[in-house]
């Protein structure tokens, strides 16, 4: 029998056009700018919520602020977070075009601390891209997440999630979707502020291969469609 896989190797990696890359870069810069502004405002915000410091006559000092952050991290209990940002997603499969567009992304999560440096929870994330010509691309996922702080006083954290993802293409006539298990990894930074924590975060998500099916008929146009997604999110967490 002759091999009948002439298209093996035709799967396409995500590669954004120069315009798309420019937009993606703008997204990253915007996120970094927001982060910088929030960082600059943070001492003022901390001052607005007085921090007792006997050595500075009641004014907030960096040392006091670090202690506040530590206090946040030592809290035990439930938390909830919501975030918005920008991200880029696409599918890799024999039928998939090279299209990766930065677009709006959102994330909601609830969870609790199981240890001082270790949180667990459940996160729901989504991504929406309006391509044009009536075409929408959406991605969403539901994951069990874990967050780990490298040290007791660290504001940096690593996060990971394991769950399911669904990527859909819809132009009103043609509708396709791929659903598959997904793994997310991310890196973030906590900024305690007025009783909440602002957390800029960068995360990447990848799914295992799954069929890309027509919503109308259930038939698969590709058997091994893999989702790739990166997103920058600015989240607010309530403890």
């Amino acid at each position: 029998m002759r091999p009948t896989t002439p298209h093996a190797g035709r799967s396409r990696a995500f590669r954004a056009s120069p315009e798309r890359r420019g937009a993606a870069g703008a997204t990253v810069l915007l996120t970094l700018l927001l982060t910088a502004i929030l960082t600059a405002l943070w001492p003022l915000a901390a001052t607005a919520q007085p921090t007792r410091d006997s050595t500075s006559g009641g004014l907030a000092t960096p040392a006091a602020i670090r202690r506040d952050a530590s206090a946040f991290a030592r809290r035990v209990g439930l938390w909830a977070s919501a975030g918005l940002g920008r991200g880029s997603a696409g599918l890799t499969c024999p039928a998939c075009q090279e299209t990766q567009t930065p677009a709006l992304t959102a994330q909601f999560a609830v969870g609790g601390r199981v240890r001082e440096r270790f949180h667990v929870g459940v996160a729901l994330w989504s991504w929406l891209d309006v391509v044009g010509d009536g075409v929408d691309r959406t991605a969403r996922g539901l994951e069990v997440i874990a967050r780990h702080y490298p040290s007791r006083d660290s504001r940096w954290f690593l996060t990971g999630g394991l769950g399911t993802s669904r990527f859909a293409i819809d132009d009103g006539d043609a509708r396709f979707h791929a659903a598959a298990p997904a793994l997310s990894l991310g890196l973030g930074w906590d900024l305690p502020m007025r009783g909440v924590v602002l957390s800029p975060m960068l995360a990447i998500t990848s799914s295992t291969g799954g069929p890309l099916r027509s919503d109308r008929t259930g038939n698969a146009i590709a058997e091994d469609a893999r989702l790739g997604l990166w997103r920058t999110t600015l989240s607010i967490t309530w403890f």
Binding site: P94, C96, Q97, I169, G172, R175
Partner: peptide, 14 residues
């Protein structure tokens, strides 16, 4: 496909 999804999906054939 003839619609907008044709920008995103394609089938290649011999």
């Amino acid at each position: 496909s003839g619609g907008g999804a044709g920008q995103l999906l394609e089938v290649r054939c011999d």
